[in-house]
Design a protein around this nucleic acid. Structure first.
Length: 184
DNA sequence: TGCTCGATAACCT
DNA sequence: GGTTATCGAGCAT
């Protein structure tokens, strides 16, 4: 996983991220998950994107250096996590919508008590809750990882993936920019 | 300065 | 399957 990987078309990166791992380091220990669901959001050409109307204080990271996290607060209670990814001079980020626990199940459960295995990380806000990711990691560079908080791990093989319409949005619903791993 | 609504999830029935 | 909690960004006054 290097900077160049994220400096490519946002939709392509969204698809490629399926099957990759996120390694989260906390005081309590290590959490490792495999990404199973993503969505691509672009710039002026994507009416569902936070960057659609140009740069704002919130969306400015989507215009900036690739590989950084863009985390935003939504519905008064939740956080969603994106990775900035776009071709040079372009705008975009990939929303990480879901993952599968690989290591640190007890830590994930501690972050999300009383949840079944199915509902542990199968949603963007559930994921950030399970990995204990909040606004303070907005702008964090997973490729530099100075504080050893979280980093990427390359997938060892491609998973079978399907492409669908993005969900939970009211505009740009015709684009097939959502990717998810087919359950084995 | 005010108002609307959202890239949602949890908790009901 | 339907409802609600909850608040900030963005845009209109």
């Amino acid at each position: 996983m290097n900077r160049h990987f994220f400096e490519q078309d946002t939709v392509w990166v969204a698809e490629q991220l399926i099957g990759c791992y996120l390694v989260r380091q906390t005081d309590e220990g290590i959490i490792r998950v495999q990404i199973t669901e993503t969505e691509a959001y672009k710039g002026a050409e994507d009416p569902a994107s936070h960057a659609y109307r140009g740069m704002t204080p919130r969306s400015r990271l989507m215009f900036g250096e690739v590989g950084r996290l863009y985390i935003y607060f939504i519905y008064g209670k939740y956080f969603c996590m994106n990775v900035v990814a776009h071709e040079p001079g372009m705008v975009g980020a990939v929303l990480i919508r879901g993952a599968r626990p690989v290591e640190g199940m007890d830590l994930i459960r501690a972050n999300r008590p009383n949840q079944s295995d199915k509902t542990l990380l199968n949603g963007p806000a559930k994921l950030t809750q399970g990995l204990n990711i909040t606004k303070d990691m907005n702008g964090y560079d997973l490729l530099a990882d100075p504080n050893n908080c979280m980093t990427w791990l390359q997938k060892e093989r491609n998973l079978t993936t399907v492409k669908t319409k993005r969900i939970g949005i009211s505009k740009g619903t015709d684009l097939l920019w959502r990717f998810l791993a087919v359950d084995p």
